[in-house]
Design a binder for these strands. Sequence first.
RNA 1: GUGCUUGUAGCUCAGCAGGAUAGAGCAACCGCCUCCUAAGCGGUAGGUCAUCGGUUCAAUUCCGAUCAAGCACACCA
Length: 564
Amino acid sequence: MIDYKQKVATAISVAVDGSLNEKDIFYKIEVPKALNLGDYAFPAFALAKYLHKAPQIIATELVEKIDKKGFEKVEAVGPYINFFLDKKDYSNNILNEVLNEQDNFGSQDLGKSNNVPIDMSSPNIAKPMSMGHLRSTVIGNAIANLLAKTNYVPVKINHLGDWGTQFGKLMCAYKMWGSEEEVKKDPIATLLKYYVRFHEEDVDKPELDDDAREWFKRLEDGDKEATQLWKWFRSESLKEFIQIYDELGIKFDSYNGEAFYNDKMDEIVELLEQKNLLKESNGAQIVDLSKYDLNPALIKRSDGATLYITRDLAAALYRKRTYNFTQSLYVVGNEQTNHFKQLKAVLKEMGYDWSDDIHHIPFGLITSGGKKLSTRAGRVILLQDVLNDAISLASKQIDEKNPSLANKKQVAHDVGVGAVVFHDLKNERLNNFDFDLEEVVRFEGETGPYVQYAHARAMSILRKAGVSELGTASYELDDNQAWETLRLLGDFPNTIERAVVEYEPSVIAKYAIHLAKAFNKYYAHSKILKADKQKAARIALVASVAVVLKEALRLLGVAAPDEM
RNA sequence: GUGCUUGUAGCUCAGCAGGAUAGAGCAACCGCCUCCUAAGCGGUAGGUCAUCGGUUCAAUUCCGAUCAAGCACACCA
C-alpha cells in the first residue's frame, strides 16, 4: 500500500525547504472531518513560528510552491492546506491490493513470530458461564486473532477455576444429596444446585463446613475418591464449556487451570525465601511492596495455605519458561487491576525484568439493573440463555425477511451469536455496561448483523455479476459516491495496527461499522451493475468491501454469512 | 480515607498521539422498495463536551482541583 500521507509530507517538506523536518510535518498532518476539505490537511500554524507570518498567508504561499503532481487538487483554506488525492490512482492501487491479497490484506509483521500467551475466559468449574465470562472470552479471542494477523503467535490459555475450598463443599454436598445420573444429565446446573444447597444448610449446621474442609484436605492429599470426584466434576463442566466455546467458534491452546500449578508453588515460595523477600506479618507470609505504593502481597496464609497470587506467580514463571514470551497478557476484569500490579511488582522484586512484559488487559463490569452480577444473590445472566435468545430471534427475523433462505439454521446461529459477540466488542473495553437483552440482540443500527448484512449484500451483487475471479486490472474509480468506501479500505492496515498496540478490539468493530455504513450508502446511491466503462471497477470495489468486512468480522470472532 | 476507571444529545456510545461548523446508533417525527436483499437509505429535532482553574496561537482532547458514579484496598479468586 502506498503511503499517501507520507507523499503529502514529502511534498510539503520539499516546499518549505527544510524549515521543518519531514517527520514533524508527517505527525502534523491530519485527516479533515469533512470530505469537502480534502483527504489530508496540514495546519500551517506550526510554521508560523519559523516564518513569522500569519498561518493563512503561509498556507496560500505554500500552495504555490507545492508540487501538485499526483494530487487531484491542493488548496489553501484559511490556515490549512488541503490535499485531494488522485481518486483514479488511489482506487486502482487499493482495489488491486485488496483483491490480490484477499484475506491477507492488512497482515503485517509486528510480532516477528514471538509467543504471546493470553490468559482468558477462565470460568469456574461447576458454575455456569455468565455474560461476564463472555467479555474475557471474546476480547481475548479477538486480541489473539489480531496478534496472529500481525505475526505474533498467540497462545490462548483458559485458566480454569478448577481448585479451591469450594470443591470440598461440592464433594461434601454431592455425597449427601447427589446422584451420578442427575449430574450427567445437566452437569453444571446440578452441581450448582448442590453448591447452593450446601450454603443454605450450613447456616444451621456449621459442622458441614468441617466436612467440606475435610474433603478438600483429602483432595489436596491425593485421596483416591476425592481426586476421582474432582476429575469427574472438572471434565463434566469442561464438556459443557466447550459446547459454548464451539458455538462461539473459539478454541483454546491450553486448559491448564489453577490446579495445574499445585505442584509449582513450592518453588515460588522457595525462590522468595532465597531472595529474602518473605516477611512474616500477623502469622502470614508476605512480600512488602511499599516501595511500589502497593499493599503487601500475601503469599501464604497464617495457616500455611497458599493464595491466589502465589498461584499466579507460579503460572507467570511457568509461562515464561514454556513460551519464552515477549508479552504475556491477562484478559481479566478491571476490578483486579491491583492484583496484577502486585503480581508484576513481586516478579520485579524477584529480579525478573520480564515482569514488564506482563500486561493486564482490563475490561469494564457488566451489571444487571445497576447491580453487580452475583451467582449467590441470584443475579446471573447465563451466557447460554442469551445466545439461545439471540439465535431464536435471528431465526424469526429470517422467516420474516428472507423465508426462502437456504441454510436458515446456520445463518440464524451466525447472526444471533454475531450480534451478541459484536455487541460485547464494539465499545471500549473499559466501559461498564448494564445488561439489556434487547440492546444485546438488536439487529439494526450499529450492530454485528448490520455489518453482516452489508457483507451479504456485497456477496449478492457479486453472485449477480457472475464474476468468479477478479484478477489484476485497471480499476480506476473517480466516483465521488465511492470515495469514502475507498478511503476506508485503505485505512484497514493502519486500523489493525492501532487495535493491536492498544489491545482494543473495539477499534476493529468501529471500523467495520464505518465501512459497512459507507458501503450501504454507496449501494443505495449507485447502480453497481449498470453497464458502463467503470462497471468492472465498481465490482472490484464491492469485492474488496466483501473481503475486508469478512476479515474484520473474522478478527472479532464473528461469522460473515454470504446470504442472510 | 487511599488508589484505579469513568463523566460528550432523552438513552447507548464515537471523536484516531490538541486544530477548521462536536459525530453516530437507538428512541420521536417525516420521507424512499415496477430498480443489485428496506436487517437498508435520506431528512427533521435534540449538546454551556460534569464544574472551575492552568498550559497553548488553538483544549471535548493535555495538567491540577472540585463534584458525581463504579471498582479495588492482606489471610476469596
